[in-house]
């Protein structure tokens, strides 16, 4: 199992800061609230998961796979998109989706 560290919910650029850049909202480095992709770090067991009791997201969190080839994941939360890579998670999600698709016929 692996999890990703090195990205945080706080500290992203706001919408209007985007407008001061080159204008692109598709390029992760320039887009509002998109953190640069970080390398995954291995984690040996689920017991290392931090307590989530105090976490307040302030809204729904949506995770999508931006690029299968690079295992790049986008996490949409609040007014930010955090981008990171997690090949193991992507592999498990894709396998699950493929199984579901197969079951659906």
């Amino acid at each position: 199992m692996s999890v990703t560290t090195g990205v945080g919910i706080a500290g992203g650029l706001g919408l209007h800061k985007l407008l001061m850049g080159d204008g692109s909202q598709a390029t992760p480095a320039a887009a509002a609230g998109i953190a640069p992709a970080a390398a995954p770090q291995p984690m040996s067991s689920a017991t290392q998961l931090p307590s989530l009791d105090a976490v307040r997201l302030g809204g729904p969190m949506l995770i999508h796979i931006r690029d299968l080839a690079t295992a790049e994941i986008g996490m949409l939360v609040g007014t930010q998109e955090l981008v990171y890579r997690d090949p193991e998670l992507v592999a498990r999600l894709v396998k699950t989706a493929a199984s579901a698709a197969q079951a659906e016929g």
Partner: peptide, 16 residues
């Protein structure tokens, strides 16, 4: 950037 459709109220998330 994303909207999730629900029966009662849709929710949106992510950057503007």
């Amino acid at each position: 950037k994303a909207t999730i459709l629900n029966e009662n109220r849709d929710v949106s998330t992510g950057p503007w």
